[in-house]
Design a protein around this nucleic acid. Structure first.
Length: 312
DNA sequence: AGCCAGGCTCTCG
DNA sequence: CGAGAGCATGGC
């Protein structure tokens, strides 16, 4: 096993605890992501070979205003290109170059969120390593509760993800389209997916393998184009596309107003508890302008961390 | 026990 | 078109 160590300087403010914590639902592990003892770990696959990424803070306690990360890359063999690629992937996932200051400026007038900003300071909206993973991840979360979604996502990785032994642990990558395609409906149902969702995922995996669906090229495409490419896919509706855009690709302006949990949060925090329709939620979010997507992330983070006194 | 969860498709008026 | 059934699993 070969190992490389380096540094990463995110755009301040940046908090690894919050950013990697959010990526793992503040639960330590979800899917292929782990955040344990202050170290964010993720096994990736490059050209069919495993590459383990580990990121830790360089000071303790961390100082979001002067962030500096230590990054370690581990693989059976490591070429220069592998290292550059791994560093780029780490920056992508942790969204280290996101600039939060305009968001914070806008939220100065938000009486609900402003009190939480100190506790959420430096939370960069993390992203999924691939568009494929973002899509599968979102499909797993359709309709079911977040607890069920987490279980299924993790089971998918535990069952089908390529393993790598290192440091006394087994690390697993998110399964490739090829791996899921050969798994078939039966295998996917064994991790708790419905017949329908298994078919959606296999359909997408097959198209990705065949090359008829250039998913990864969408990572830097304009949001409307991503929506136009993904919505025609079976099993992909507006909710799923918006979560891929926000949670998978980190688009600041995409607000998943159709999300039931988000609607309920907005109802309690901004509408005196009265239920909101998707359209009402979308209109309400207009006040956050091009940052409404990041606001959705803050709302979920605040809720998961129990930061809203009124939700107790 | 039964209903609802961070939706979507398919079917039927 | 709009409404409604069905889906997997876990928690309340």
């Amino acid at each position: 096993m070969e190992r490389w160590e380096g540094r990463l300087a995110p755009t301040p403010p940046f908090s690894l605890a919050l950013t990697a914590g959010y990526q793992t639902y503040f639960q330590g592990q979800v899917g292929a992501d782990r955040f344990q003892n202050g170290v964010y770990s993720r096994l990736l696959v490059r050209n069919g070979r495993p590459v383990l990424l580990q990121v830790a803070g360089s000071s303790s306690p961390e100082d979001p205003n002067h962030p500096l990360l230590r990054i370690q890359v581990v693989a059976p063999t490591l070429a220069q290109e592998d290292i550059a690629w791994a560093v780029e992937r780490a920056s992508w996932i942790l969204h280290t170059d996101a600039d939060l200051r305009p968001l914070y400026t806008r939220l100065q007038e938000d009486h609900t969120l402003r009190p939480l900003l100190p506790a959420l300071y430096g939370l960069h909206p993390p992203r999924m390593p691939s568009v494929f993973e973002g899509l599968v991840f979102a499909i797993c979360g359709q309709q079911v509760s977040s607890v069920v979604a987490r279980r299924i996502r993790t089971a998918l990785v535990e069952r089908f993800g390529e393993p790598m032994d290192w440091d006394g642990q087994v690390w697993r990558a998110f399964p490739s389209p090829e791996r899921l395609w050969e798994t078939g409906v039966k295998g996917l149902r064994e991790v708790g997916l419905s017949q329908r969702k298994a078919e959606y995922i296999l359909d997408i995996a097959r198209q990705a393998v065949e090359g008829s669906l250039p998913l990864e090229a969408l990572a830097y495409s304009p949001s409307p184009e991503v929506e136009a490419r993904l919505t025609p896919l079976r099993g992909i509706g507006r909710w799923t596309v918006e979560w891929v855009l926000l949670r998978g690709l980190g688009r600041p302006e995409v607000f998943p107003a159709g999300d039931l949990a988000l609607q309920r949060l907005l109802a309690r925090l901004y509408n005196h508890g009265s239920p909101l329709s998707a359209e009402e939620a979308r209109m309400l979010a207009e006040r956050w302008g091009p940052w409404k997507g990041y606001v959705a992330v803050l709302l979920f983070a605040g809720a998961r961390l129990g930061l809203f006194p009124s939700l107790r």
